[in-house]
């Protein structure tokens, strides 16, 4: 170890100038929110109020006409989230790279039960290739497991010009058409809208996508029939956000965004319809209200390969 300890031992210390500059940046960041707090809070309340009003309208309309979406509210969210996507100064992914994601999750229910155990949390790490084709995770023994990814679309596919809400949704629909859905026992396969929502939900939650694609997906989400706004939805970390919400044949899924800057916070899903006689579930029963997923993104970063952090 001594040779290693001595290696580059004469490296010069931090200069006073560098130290002052770094400390200055920290202090600037520490003081910034104090100055901004009032207007930001005001904006947040305004957004919440706008959503509350339009959600109210949407619910009334929806009751009379079940197929009508609360367009005003969800398009408002789509538009705001889309605009915020352009402000995202995240790293720009390039071909061959991967998105490393660390998230907090409610783990699978113990003893083979259906759904997740929302009283517990685990940290989950995964890597998704920027081309959207592969997803990787670690085995408990540290080996890396690489699998194919759903829906198999990446930044390059979805970013093909012109990028519009219609173009990205059409591309996803086309991809979904070629897939076969296996459902167990009495459950019904998801509708085309539900499949589309789930695919967008998965893309937004797991892929590194350029701002214009994210914006198009947000605007596109708002156009999928049945997609609503939900407010005050908590993620696995207890952060409350505004969500794109879709209730399908048997479950409801929420894509939770920060209510101020609309960055992705996490996901939440709950079974809305009970089933009995399901073959591969212990006891054969799925109860309505069973939590299906609860996550919170803690960190996401572009890396050069799966397994890197």
């Amino acid at each position: 170890m001594k040779a290693i300890k001595d290696f580059r031992r004469d490296t010069p210390p931090m200069t006073a100038a560098a130290g002052n500059a770094a400390r200055g940046r920290l202090l600037a960041a520490a003081l910034e929110p104090e100055r901004r707090r009032a207007p930001r809070l005001g904006w947040r309340l305004a957004v919440a109020a706008a959503l509350a009003v339009t959600v109210g309208t949407g619910v009334v309309v929806a009751r009379d006409q079940p197929r009508t979406t609360p367009v005003a509210s969800v398009s408002e969210l789509g538009e705001r989230a889309a605009r915020a996507a352009y402000d995202d100064r995240g790293q720009v992914p390039s071909a061959g790279q991967w998105l490393y994601i660390r998230e907090l999750q409610a783990p699978q229910s113990a003893d083979g039960g259906y759904g997740v155990d929302v009283s517990r949390r685990v940290v989950w790490e995964q890597w998704t290739s920027v081309d959207g084709k592969q997803v990787a995770a670690l085995y408990p023994d540290g080996r890396l497991l690489v699998q194919g990814n759903h829906p198999g679309l990446g930044a390059a596919d979805l970013g093909r010009a012109p990028v519009t809400p219609e173009s990205v949704l059409a591309m996803i629909r086309q991809k979904l058409e070629g897939m076969e859905w296996v459902v167990d026992g009495p459950q019904t396969p998801p509708s085309a809208e539900e499949q589309l929502f789930q695919a967008v939900y998965q893309l937004m939650g797991t892929q590194a996508l350029p701002p214009e694609v994210r914006a198009a997906l947000f605007r596109g989400l708002a156009t999928i029939p049945g997609v609503r706004v939900a407010t005050e939805v908590a993620d696995a970390d207890g952060r409350r956000g505004v969500a794109f919400s879709y209730t399908g044949e048997s479950a409801r899924y929420d894509l939770i965004l920060d209510p101020v800057d609309y960055r992705f916070l996490g996901t939440s899903g709950v079974q809305t319809k009970g089933y009995t006689g399901v073959a591969d579930v212990k006891g054969g029963t799925i109860a309505a209200g069973t939590p299906l997923t609860l996550t919170a993104r803690l960190e996401a970063r572009i890396v050069d390969g799966p397994g890197q952090r």
Binding site: R23, L26, L27, A30
Partner: peptide, 8 residues
Amino acid sequence: PEQFALLF
């Protein structure tokens, strides 16, 4: 927040 500078 300025207390954080002591950590620096």
